[in-house]
Structure formats: C-alpha cells, structure tokens
C-alpha cells in the first residue's frame, strides 16, 4: 500500500517479480553464467546508484530479503511471480514454480504464482501444464519466447504447438498470458523481437489476455499498433518503468504513447524485481508528472486516478482481486503487523 501525503491509500500489484537462483552452484554451463551477468548489467545500468546490489547478492537472494524489499519497503500489496525455467542453463529451474508456491503458502493473499510452458515439450508438456494448473492453481503463465530448447533457440506464439498450449490454457482457466519477447534467436532470418505472432494469438484467443512484458520494447511501435487492433492485449511496464530514473523524458514519452494508443485500463506496473526495486520505482512514479510539451503533443494526462489503475487496479481486474475485501484481509497478516509496528 502506498500512502500519499494527503492520506490517499493506493493498492499496489507488482505484476512482475522473481525469486531466482542464478548462483554459480546452480549454473549448468557458461550460458547460465552469461544470463545472470546480463541481468546484472541491466540492474546496474538503470538503477539509482544507491540501489545497486553487490554482485553475489544479485545472483541469489533469500526469501526474507524478498519479503522485506517487495512488501515491507516496496509498498507492494500483491506480487505476481513470473518465472522462467531456463532449464538448459540451470540445474534447478532459474524461476521455480514449486519454490514460489511454497513461499506463497507462507503469506496467504500476498502472491499470485504463475507457471510457464514451452510448446516444444509437446504432449508431455501439456500434461505437466495440467498438473501444475491443478497443483498450483494457475491463473496465468509467463512465456519467454527466446528460451533455448535442445537445438531450437526460440519459438513463436503462432506455431501450431503454441496454439495447442493456448487452447489448453483456455480450457484450464489460465486466462493471463504474459509474453516476454526476449532477444529471441529464432526465426533466425527474421527480426528477433518481432511481435506480430502476438497479434495472431490474440485474435485467435479473444478470451485470453495477452500481457506483453516490456511493452514490446524494442518494438514499441509494432506493439502499439497491435494493441490498438486487439482489445485483449495489455502493456506490462517492466523495464520501461526503470527509464523513469535515468531517462525520465523517454519514460514520459513511452507512457504517453501507451495512453494514446491503448488506454489507461490496459497498462500494468511491474518492477521486474530483483532487476529493480519497487520502492524507488513507485516513489518516482508517484512523484512523476508529464512534461507539458509531451502532454500537449499526445493530448493525454497522467492523473492520480490513472496512476492507481496502472499500479494495481488493472492487474486486480485481470486476476479477479476484489480490492476492498482483499485489503481488509491483508491488514491482518504478519507483514501488515510488522509494518504497523515499524510505524
């Protein structure tokens, strides 16, 4: 919960968090080392100086650190795990659905634990998705289309097997498909960041929600175009958020373009923790005002009501969270008690 100076209470859903294990002990090969090193470069590149973690802590951090950072310092009421397995690079999955679920059990109401699938796992993967859906009560999945799988170095949502998995999601009641267009390697002859497959998937599955993480960056223009066509396409702000510190003007332009091309109901906050800490992101976002010239050019505004939607209400709608009831429930939990004690 974020409290404004004038006493307004803002419900915060962090749409993108992780409890990863990138430790040397868990790395399977050089790729595993390079993956977490690349994350660390993102972290160092866009974080304010005082928020930069030591290298070793960044590779693997414990549950208590997570709870304190995200919920106690970071204003977050509910956090959504968006795990990626990366099993070709790590011995235990980098983002671990079972481990996430265990932590969620300790803090009822604080987490939504999403799963993931890889369409290249074929029939076996479909069965696992069914098991996970039942075991972990999945409402969403995180898809990383750049994931390596044997000789294959990526997939597209328009692949026939991907469509079968999406149909399975629909059947299992997994409504929220978070798509991360990483630096995919395949199809090799094409633009690796191309987002056009999301267009096809969103048209074919109008009852699923497609949350495009990182607002499709670095293909923002293509993403905006698709989102104007498809009402079930959403913008996940992870990464784009972080520009607010080093390049506030880019952030202003990005958020105003999103408000212009999509609308205020389809933009979701996400810190991408532990890449970036929600506290500074939210502090800077709440203090942020669109520069006049940018507001004038796009004709949009970024009011407190719009910020409330972005910070929590939009995600709450997608995940069927009734905000007043949920807030009342969280008020009694251990985290809220500790926060009250700390004043």
């Amino acid at each position: 919960m974020y409290k404004t100076d004038d006493g307004d209470e803002i419900f915060v859903v962090d749409g993108h968090v992780a409890l990863w294990d990138g430790s040397v002990a868990n790395q399977k090969n050089r790729h595993g080392a390079e993956f977490i090193e690349c994350f660390y470069d993102y972290h160092r590149n866009l974080s304010p100086e005082s928020w930069i973690w030591p290298h070793d802590k960044f590779l693997k951090y414990d549950e208590d650190t997570f709870i304190r950072d995200v919920f106690e310092m970071g204003y977050v009421d509910v956090a959504i795990f968006q795990p990626v397995g990366l099993v070709e690079f790590y011995k235990e999955p980098f983002g671990n659905v079972a481990k996430n679920y265990q932590l969620a059990q300790k803090y009822p109401g604080r987490f939504i634990g999403n799963g993931y699938f890889d369409p290249r796992d074929g029939e076996a993967g479909l069965e696992r998705l069914e098991e996970w859906a039942a075991q972990y009560h999945l409402q969403g999945v995180k898809l990383y289309t750049a994931e390596w799988h044997g000789d294959s170095k990526g997939y597209r949502l328009s692949d026939p097997w991907a469509e079968r998995y999406l149909a399975k999601c629909l059947q299992l009641g997994i409504r929220n498909i978070h798509v991360h267009k990483g630096p995919t390697i395949k199809p090799l002859n094409m633009d690796a960041f191309d987002v056009s497959d999301i267009d096809a998937a969103a048209s074919n599955f109008p009852d699923l929600n497609f949350i495009v993480e990182h607002v499709g960056l670095p293909r923002l223009e293509a993403f905006c175009w698709i989102a104007t066509q498809e009402p079930n396409v959403y913008a996940g702000l992870a990464v784009a958020n972080a520009f607010i510190h080093t390049r506030p003007r880019y952030f202003a332009q990005i958020i105003s373009e999103l408000l212009y091309w999509l609308d205020e109901d389809r933009i979701l906050f996400g810190s991408d923790y532990a890449l970036w800490h929600p506290k500074w992101l939210i502090d800077e976002f709440m203090a942020f005002e669109l520069p006049d010239d940018i507001a004038q050019e796009t004709g949009v505004t970024l009011t407190r009501d719009i910020k409330k939607k972005i910070l929590g209400l939009n995600a709450a709608r997608l995940y069927n969270i009734d905000v007043p009831t949920h807030q009342a429930k969280l008020q009694k939990d251990a985290i809220s008690q500790r926060l009250r004690q700390a004043g």
């Binding site: 390079e34 993956f35 690349c38 630096p183 995919t184 390697i185 090799l188 690796a192």
Partner: peptide
C-alpha cells in the same frame, strides 16, 4: 552490449 544480442 550483451552475450545474447540476436545473431542475425
């Protein structure tokens, strides 16, 4: 900039 920049 990264180990993962698209090879194409």
């Amino acid at each position: 900039p990264t180990y993962w920049c698209a090879p194409n």
